[in-house]
């Protein structure tokens, strides 16, 4: 019983497209930008098995806890994390976005930075726990409020690279097959299920 309670209540979600994503005007919003296959294609899990739904839920929770609004968009034009994050930041009313790929690598981006230099980068998907995703959402919201939070702590596992590199590449290659060149980002509604 206790195990059940400890596990995240949302392991599934439904993503509904709501048309082309608009540039936000609310200064208190953070855009969650997801990659082309994230959430409803492939395995709907990150590299080391976290449900995509649970990850999104943690992002949202971290942002909401800071009393900032979350808005989810899917970027179609690229599976590259920096590009997804930068597009998200440009759409965000606060100029801040969090972005994630299907394999689970994530970042926090800001509108005025150069695309390849995000505010915080989380390259090692396998070392990211759900609590880290919550923390990433929280930090993004703090940046949106003009605070200067300490960066989300990361565990650096030297074994992660050799162990996961091959499968991570496969994930990414598969994800790029879902890319739609030239297509605009879309607004998504999310609904979580258990």
């Amino acid at each position: 019983m206790s195990e059940q309670l400890a596990s995240p209540p949302a392991v599934e979600m439904t993503l509904t497209e709501r048309g082309p994503a608009k540039t936000g005007t609310a200064p208190d919003e953070v855009v969650i930008a997801i990659s082309p296959a994230f959430g409803d294609q492939m395995k709907r899990k990150t590299l080391h098995g976290l449900a995509h739904a649970a990850v999104i839920r943690e992002f949202c929770a971290g942002i909401e806890e800071e009393q900032v609004k979350a808005r989810i968009v899917r970027v179609w034009r690229s599976a590259d994390l920096a590009a997804i994050g930068f597009d998200g930041a440009k759409l965000s009313g606060s100029g801040i976005s969090v972005a994630i790929q299907s394999r689970g690598t994530a970042l926090i981006h800001q509108r005025d930075l150069v695309p390849l230099a995000p505010m915080e980068l989380f390259p090692q998907a396998p070392s990211l726990a759900l609590s880290t995703f919550r923390h990433i959402g929280k930090n993004a919201a703090k940046y949106a409020k003009g605070d200067s939070p300490s960066p989300v702590p990361q565990v650096n596992d030297p074994m992660a690279r050799p162990k996961w590199q091959a499968i991570a590449s496969i994930y990414h290659i598969r994800e790029t097959q879902f890319v739609r060149q030239g297509e605009k980002a879309v607004e998504l509604d999310v609904e979580f299920h258990t």
Binding site: T23, D87, K90, A185
Partner: peptide, 16 residues
Amino acid sequence: DADKPSIGSAEAGARP
């Protein structure tokens, strides 16, 4: 035009 997230357009790299 204003709504377009102008990635790669002149605006993105333009001096603030």
